[in-house]
């Protein structure tokens, strides 16, 4: 195996960073300057920069010769035929926007919408490039499909939202109450991801014997237990159930208000104090379950990349 778990962690963390940034930016768009969701935004922006920093460190650490001779990293901008070179440019833009927006948020300044828009574009490029990076490699037919960048993009947003929501639930649960529409988007990503995963495995297994061998390792071979229990059950099925129940509870008449007045709902529940049962309160049981689902999403997000990296069988052995 040429690339292993370090690269899988990098792909996951870069995607997580992109997803968390997009979550914060979407919250900001919904907030429209009313400052009702300041903490969720801050959490998203911190998660984004932190995940990106850790991911980049892992990437540099894995590039042994560059790690020993750091000046060589300047050569990274020389071959624009390489996806990795484009990745460096994309990561540069995303990293800068991510840092600036975090500083603005920390200084309690309003982040301009155009900057968040640019950031969302850079985040989407970051998440998709992690799929293109390995998707252009013909040696591994499992990777060599156009579906992979799309799958990684969807999974990245899903993981970023999950991480932001878990931490926000601890720090600012009431702000989270008003973000029903994002929770619905978060939920909708799961069946999308499942569909893309099935399509990827199905299409890939029909392209080349090496891809078929890779799919067999996942579905019924040495990686089957991790694939079924880790990725499918913990990463997709559990979050689907918990997310569905969470949204169902949120939709009750006694639950939080409609999405259009979500921000007001959040503030109203804030005034409601600790009395509980007020407008827009979700029971702690449901909240715990939603958090468990989000942990599942994160586990699944990592395992998706890890399994796709390690399951890939090269063409070499089937000439």
């Amino acid at each position: 195996m040429i690339w292993g778990s370090i690269i899988a962690w990098y792909l996951f963390l870069a995607g997580l960073a992109a997803g968390a940034f997009a979550t914060a930016a979407l919250v900001s768009f919904k907030d429209r300057g009313r400052k009702a969701f300041v903490k969720v935004q801050l959490v998203g922006r911190i998660v984004a920069l932190l995940a990106l920093a850790i991911g980049l460190f892992l990437l540099i650490f894995d590039a042994e010769a560059g790690f020993k001779n750091p000046l060589r990293f300047f050569y990274l901008l020389t071959n624009f035929a390489s996806v990795m070179t484009w990745g460096v440019v994309i990561l540069g833009v995303f990293g800068c926007v991510s840092l600036v927006t975090l500083l603005l948020s920390l200084l309690k300044k309003h982040v301009p919408y155009w900057l968040d828009g640019l950031g969302i574009a850079a985040a989407a490029c970051t998440a998709a490039y992690t799929g293109v990076l390995i998707g252009v490699i013909k040696t591994y037919p499992l990777w060599n499909t156009a579906l992979l960048p799309v799958l990684f993009l969807v999974s990245a947003l899903s993981a970023g939202m999950a991480a932001t929501f878990i931490l926000s639930a601890l720090i600012a649960p009431r702000e989270l109450e008003g973000l029903g529409i994002l929770k619905k988007l978060h939920f909708a990503l799961l069946p999308t991801e499942l569909l893309l995963l099935v399509a990827l495995l199905y299409v890939a297994s029909s392209t080349a014997p090496a891809a078929q061998a890779s799919v067999e390792r996942l579905v019924s071979g040495d990686l089957a237990l991790t694939f079924w229990l880790g990725l499918v059950v913990a990463g997709l099925i559990v979050p689907l159930f918990s997310g569905g129940i969470g949204i169902g509870a949120g939709g009750n008449p006694g639950g939080r208000g409609s999405d259009t007045d979500g921000a007001d709902g959040a503030r109203a529940s804030g005034r409601g104090g600790a009395g509980g049962g007020g407008r827009g309160r979700t029971s702690s049981g449901i909240r715990t379950m939603e958090a468990a689902g989000d942990v599942g999403v994160l586990v699944g997000g990592f395992l998706l990349r890890y399994l796709i990296i390690v399951a890939a069988v090269p063409l070499t052995f089937v000439f």
């Binding site: 894995d62 050569y75 990795m84 490699i137 040696t139």
Partner: peptide, 11 residues
């Protein structure tokens, strides 16, 4: 830099 991208690309 030892990124090993070439190693994965070599069929």
């Amino acid at each position: 830099i030892g990124c090993k991208y070439c190693m994965t690309a070599c069929p």
